[in-house]
């Protein structure tokens, strides 16, 4: 088999970045006890808003910042509905996806067929020239490194900071957290907005780097994969990277094998990551002590201070 593992891994890292970004955001949201199924909608809003900003300012960086803001703004709709107006989270998230897909197409009218400014590769003091590790690790644009950095930050935040402890407490048992004087709703809204901005950046990575162009409906289900990755990772930040590379990798590997003339049962192969996710989930849940360390107990439950 003459598949270059090096270039395969390098491509895989790029392919996994949008879903890794979105999944990192969703992890924080779920850790706070909220299930936002609107990731797809927030991603595509980020994709178009980031694209518009980057094209008009000729700066990918501004594009990503605007994408984050746009994703956060859209997620605020979800936050108001679920946190203040106590609407069901599943239904609100689905409505958010529908709304985001439509709005992005309206905003993107007139932006098809435009080339975004290209995102420069990071300069690692010539390390990109190194054999093997060079192309895999040191030849990417800044967002790839940012996405991994973000995972690190989220891990540190959850594990070592007081804020992380509070966030987990809120997700674990909102009644108790409330009794301890924490502002459950405020914390959750911040978490939701963080999730929105991450999803927005993930979407922008699609439209600015990975594809790079704007087309209606271009996220094509990436947001749903991000949701799966959070579960696969059993709410552990580092495992997100593994999950994202696994999910992204299956597609890349499959396409590369095909290009090499191997016949692929494509649809059955595409199921595999989801089945693995279920298995992981089952293993995690079967041990009740371990499960309680990861899956937020209040996930998806509505909180009202006086109830």
């Amino acid at each position: 088999m003459d598949i270059s593992i090096v270039s395969l891994l390098a491509t895989l890292i790029v392919a996994a970045t949008p879903i890794l970004l979105a999944a990192t955001g969703e992890l924080i949201v779920e850790k706070s006890g909220v299930l936002n199924l609107g990731v797809e909608g927030m991603m595509i809003i980020g994709a178009i808003c980031g694209f518009i900003a980057a094209v008009n300012t000729d700066s990918p960086l501004i594009g990503f910042i605007v994408a984050a803001l746009a994703g956060a703004a859209l997620s605020l709709l979800f936050a108001v509905l679920t946190q203040y107006l106590l609407a069901n989270q599943v239904a609100s998230g689905l409505a958010l996806t529908l709304f985001g897909l439509g709005l992005s197409a309206l905003l993107g009218h007139g932006y098809s067929g435009i080339k975004p400014p290209s995102s420069p590769k990071m300069e690692w003091f010539g390390m990109a020239e190194l054999p093997v590790v060079g192309p895999i690790f040191f030849n990417h644009d800044m967002m790839v490194y940012f996405s991994i950095f973000l995972v690190l930050v989220v891990w540190l935040f959850l594990k070592f900071t007081r804020g992380g402890l509070i966030l987990r407490a809120v997700g674990e048992n909102h009644e108790a957290a409330h009794a301890l004087g924490y502002k459950v709703i405020r914390i959750r809204i911040l978490a939701i907005m963080f999730g929105g901005s991450c999803a927005g950046m993930g979407g922008a990575y699609l439209s600015l780097v990975r594809v790079p162009q704007w087309t209606e409906g271009m996220t094509a289900g990436a947001g749903w994969i991000a949701l799966a990755i959070v579960v696969f990772a059993s709410w552990k930040p580092w495992r997100l990277i593994l999950g994202a590379y696994l999910f992204g990798g299956v597609t890349i590997l499959q396409l590369n094998l095909q290009a090499n003339g191997f016949d692929m049962p494509v649809s059955y192969l595409s199921m595999a990551p989801y089945l693995v996710t279920i298995v992981v989930l089952v293993i995690m849940s079967a041990d009740r002590r371990r499960a309680s360390l990861n899956a937020p107990a209040s996930l998806g439950k509505i909180f009202h201070a006086s109830s």
């Binding site: 598949i3 270059s4 949008p18 271009m218 597609t251 396409l255 095909q258 692929m264 649809s267």
Partner: peptide, 23 residues
């Protein structure tokens, strides 16, 4: 030849093109 099993999925089409170029 790479079969994408889709008519329209920009990200997947982009990946397919990348894979072919790599090969």
């Amino acid at each position: 030849i790479v079969w994408a099993y889709t008519w329209f999925d920009p990200a997947k089409e982009a990946d397919a093109a990348t894979a072919l170029i790599e090969q």
